[in-house]
Simulated assay, not measured.
Amino acid sequence: MGKSKRNTPKPESNRAQRLAERRAAQEQAANAVTRPFQGLAAECDLVALREFVPSATATLKLAPGVAAERSVVLATVLPGAVAALVRAGDEEIGFVGVQVQQQGPDPAADLAAAILWTQSAEGGESLAAADAFEGGPSLIDVLDPGADLELTVHQDFDWWVPAGVTPDAQVAATIEQAKQAIMPSARIALGPDATGAAWWVDAGEKAHVRWVRPEPEDELMAALARLHAAGGLHLGDGSRFAGTFRTHGLLVPVFDLDRERHPDEWATPADEFAARLAAALDTDEPLSSEERRSRDGLRSRQVTLR
């Protein structure tokens, strides 16, 4: 009979490698920047684009001191999930992606490094991973911090290929495969008094609004608890508050929606909710016992993405 493998020790080299990988992951988590896009007017949209928007682009407004050799387009994801590429042609355009395959502890620093790379790269080149380093350029130094993103939301990835160019069979197959996995999405057009970035997404069985909020978490959670206790934590008929998740230092309330309604139909209910939430945020009174119970219940349904 052969020896049982149950008690056979694993090679020491494999164990050492696993321990090294675990330590590296722990160090990266410890060094991760809690709120990387803070200070930018587009913070909430940048978080949304990085975390859950499938396909969108926006031409970036660079900071005045940055020598702009070519325009730069921010994209949710680029082919191969690379950090950046420069599209060759009569008008060379730089593209940077926020959903990347390789990332460091500070996504804002990665994005800054990718933007600067597009200004010196040759047409047709791509950058697999951004070469950000401690003490290097920050995103606030590279982008105009007061500029919002003028977004174009796509329901496919045809924009990966320049207009008028017929992709080869392999590229066409990649685009079609990506298109099959995409979830229809739209940015809710909020009124001037509403804050944050509210995104509608059709996830299949349900539609949702995911609303990235800029307020400090404790203040926002208290305001949500006040609305919950008063029966105002909703977006009107056909909606239900589903919970919150935390990502990049911001809290994101999520609402389940009637998926038969068009995204534009949620703009007015969203503005009405924004007004209720603003009033709750302005309240300085201590939470009542019922509101504290609501807050505890809301926190029990909270998750952290990163």
Rank of each mutant, 00 (worst) to 15 (best):
P145F: 09
H228V: 05
T174G: 08
V171M: 13
A75C: 11
K61I: 13
P54A: 06
D237K: 15
E27D: 15
D256R: 15
G39F: 04
Q101T: 01
A129E: 14
E21V: 11
A178W: 15
L49G: 02
A128S: 08
V47N: 04
V153T: 12
E290T: 15
A242Q: 13
T76V: 15
N7D: 10
R276I: 10
T8H: 12
V171A: 14
A20G: 15
R299H: 05
S300L: 13
A198F: 01
A20E: 15
L78H: 04
A25T: 12
A207Q: 00
E122M: 12
A41K: 09
H228G: 07
Q101E: 11
T166H: 09
A186F: 09
G249Y: 11
V254L: 05
P107S: 09
A172K: 13
D45Q: 14
I182A: 11
D202R: 03
H154S: 03
L139H: 00
N14Y: 02
D148A: 11
S294W: 01
A203G: 09
L40G: 00
W199K: 01
A278D: 01
D296M: 04
A189S: 14
H154M: 07
T195R: 14
T152L: 13
A88H: 12
A63E: 02
D202A: 05
D168F: 03
L116H: 08
Q180Y: 10
P54Y: 01
N14F: 06
F157L: 10
C44E: 04
A222K: 10
L49R: 03
G196P: 03
V171S: 14
L111P: 01
V33Q: 13
A67G: 11
P167S: 07
Q26T: 08
H262L: 11
A169Q: 09
A29V: 07
G164P: 06
E285N: 10
F95T: 09
G238K: 03
H234Q: 05
A48K: 04
H208E: 08
S288V: 12
Q28P: 06
A132K: 10
L127E: 10
G136C: 03
T268F: 05
V73P: 06
A32C: 06
L298R: 04
T76A: 09
V86G: 04
P286S: 02
L149W: 05
R210P: 05
E51T: 07
P9C: 08
G94C: 06
T59S: 09
G80Y: 13
R259A: 06
V161D: 14
